[in-house]
Design a protein around this nucleic acid. Structure first.
Length: 420
DNA sequence: TCTGGGGTCCTAGGACCC
DNA sequence: TCTGGGGTCCTAGGACCC
């Protein structure tokens, strides 16, 4: 038996925790670069503000409706997320952190001691008390049904945020009420195709023959169908598997036309990617760089090349990553374009920085690599300040736009809230 | 002027091998 | 008139998720 716990309007709720004056008011959070809407408070949803709407298009409307707007403050959200997850880990025997704002819990044994719905309510109370955030809880025999139960808990207020879907009869009733594209694993494309085949709601999908699904779609959707019927196909993944790739990419605050600016941006992304790689305790061999012009711009030719380079020996030393990324960039750079975005991707990971060497390989091992990287990481994690490589430059013409950023309430000493 | 970022899994097709 | 069968590995692209 699974429970899915997720935080309601996570990003906006994080903002209002520290701004109680905004409670009950429409609040939205916009993506990096103040690009589009990625989180809305209940009041903002009521105003009809759409998820993913480009901010520049609805800016005036938001001002007219008196909507509070925040740039994304991921340092804040990640910190509150950790707090929520550690409460869950105290209360439940097994927790799978599925995303920044949701987790699956294994509640198989819990029913022997306490009604599952009661357990769901206890989780809710505990998290609200300790973090100020409200969660929804969906309980069911498969992950896909637990997702659906959670959807029901959010959609119908009389559930008071908790839905136990253990009972098969209840499952059928709910499935019949839910449009097929609300099912976990059914996105826009597949939803549309299912509609064309006459499958409108989740119950119809559950009753569809797996043979038909396999023929017209794939094994992934077949698993979804089985899960909807109550047959578990997905298990708890309590321990995050090792990453296979790491991407660090950003849109620029302004279009970039100068090679020098692009070099700096790529250097900064390479540094950040290397930092993530070390946090994973991994080493990589392949470093790719990509960049692109705006796909939306009319009267401009789209250009979006990618290039990669390989290290002879797996490394997580920022200097190696920057060097190869710089060489890759050199190969794809073209003057005359207005670049919107770039990124650095690491892949081909190893758990150690060693490789079988050829007899005639000629390479110079670095003696100070580990100690230097550790020192950099420790400084940057301390919350007291940061150090970076000179290749990033100091002008940062490429830096992203975050004009409505809230303070680092929990992650910067200077921004700690003061109780009066 | 202006449309996020970071992942995973699966499949199809090409290169190459015997 | 005509050109096997079976396998592996790699990459690109498409779908999904939050």
């Amino acid at each position: 038996m699974f429970a899915l716990v997720d935080v309601n309007s996570f990003y906006t709720s994080c903002e209002t925790v520290f701004r109680p004056d905004l409670l009950g008011k429409p609040v939205v959070v916009v993506s990096n670069n103040d690009g589009c809407i990625i989180s809305r408070s209940a009041e903002a949803k009521k105003l009809g503000i759409k998820m993913g709407a480009p901010y520049f298009k609805i800016k005036d409307e938001l001002r007219r409706q008196n909507v509070a707007v925040f740039s994304s403050n991921y340092a804040l959200y990640a910190d509150l997320s950790h707090r929520v997850m550690s409460i869950l880990m105290e209360m439940a025997p097994a927790v799978e952190v599925y995303s920044i704002d949701e987790a699956f819990i294994n509640v198989t044994g819990v029913a022997n001691c306490i009604a599952l719905e009661t357990f769901g309510r206890q989780i809710r109370e505990q998290i609200l008390k300790n973090t100020g955030l409200t969660v929804g809880v969906g309980i069911a025999p498969t992950k896909t049904l637990a997702k659906l139960a959670n959807f029901a808990a959010k959609t119908w207020s009389k559930t008071k945020g908790v839905v136990d879907l253990s009972d098969p009869e209840r499952q059928r009733k709910l499935l019949a009420l839910v449009p097929v594209d609300e099912v976990w694993g059914v996105g826009r494309r597949i939803g549309k195709k299912l509609n064309q085949m006459g499958i409108e709601n989740a119950l119809q999908l559950a009753e569809c023959s797996t043979w038909v699904i396999r023929k017209h779609f794939n094994v992934v959707l077949e698993r979804t169908v089985r899960e909807l019927r109550g047959e578990p196909c997905l298990e708890m993944d309590e321990f995050a598997p090792a990453k296979q790739q790491i991407i660090c990419s950003r849109s620029f605050g302004h279009r970039i036309t100068e090679y020098r600016d692009m070099q700096q941006a790529v250097c900064a992304y390479a540094e950040r990617a290397a930092e993530k790689l070390r946090a994973e305790r991994q080493y990589c061999c392949v470093i790719s760089v990509f960049m692109r012009t705006s796909p939306h711009a009319e009267n401009e030719v789209f250009y979006g090349p990618q290039a990669s380079g390989r290290l002879a020996i797996p490394s997580n030393d920022t200097r190696d990553i920057i060097r190869v990324a710089g060489q890759a960039l050199e190969r794809i750079w073209q003057d005359g374009f207005r670049y919107m975005k770039a990124g650095v991707m690491l892949s081909d990971f190893f758990s150690q920085g060693v490789a079988q060497l050829n007899l005639f390989d000629d390479y110079q091992p670095r003696h100070n690599s580990q100690a230097l990287m550790q020192t950099i990481d420790r400084l940057n994690l301390s919350g007291r300040g940061t150090v970076w490589f000179a290749g990033q430059g100091s002008q940062k013409n490429w830096a992203m736009k975050r004009e409505m950023l809230s303070p680092g309430y929990t992650t910067r000493y200077a921004d700690l809230p003061v109780a009066k």
